[in-house]
Amino acid sequence: MSLTKIVPSQKSNRLPELLVPALLGALLLVYFAIPFVAFLARSGPANVVAGLSSPEAQRAIHNSLITAPISTLIAAVFGIPLAYVLARTSFVGKRFVEALVILPLVVPPVVGGAMILTAVGRFTPIGSAVATLGISLTDSLIGVVLAQTFVAAPFVIITARAGFGAIDERLEQASRSLGYGPLSTFWNVSLPLARGAIVAGIILTFARAIGEFGATMMVAYNPRTMPTRIWVDFIAGGIDSIVPLALALLGITLAVLAAVQRFGRVPTVIDQ
């Protein structure tokens, strides 16, 4: 009866199933690609090399290459255990902790930077206490690391948490029953099995840290990192003057991504 009616009508206007989502996605991809291509088209190789050999640019690259890996390391060392706890237990106030993890992502980086200043600025209790030891938490590489860690750490926490959550808890229980304590089980089983997600999280964190501008500008406008240098150059010399550093920043991020994927044997960042 009605069944026979429905079948042919469906067949006649049948489109490839993914046509609509593919078209929508393609529009966005085009929008991603156009600025990228336009930007690259502006620069010749000669002035890139020249631009990067200036002492200011060298200094900025140097600072970024020191701070971003340290921030990423801090985020990983403290974030991965937190991710594991969040994936494995429920406790009173867990929602609150989860909200706290998300907070740096929702707060605009500039505001985040301002918040860091109110906590560790020169004239705050923490800032002045540390200053008596001769260490400055603002306008220093430490300040850069503080800003980068604040903004970038959530990425590794969130991704690693998803990775740990995807591991069947019984794999860990089997390890315990085979004679391993909780720490060696984490090391032997949970960590290797969540490796893909953790590596993805580390890449995202690194990319976010090395590109960090808003919070860094508030906490440590000096010494210049690559993003703050790009801003200063842009104010002084317009778009063309920032092309060399911008390309270098992009190059570093892509190189790290490629290297980590290769050694971490992770197919793609997103496909976790």
Binding site: D168, L171, Q173, A174, R176, S177, G179, G181, V189, L193
Partner: peptide, 17 residues
Amino acid sequence: PPEDRHVGIVFQQSTLY
């Protein structure tokens, strides 16, 4: 804790590493 018990366990789902 489980690691001090000397109990072998096999679950319904595979837990091979």
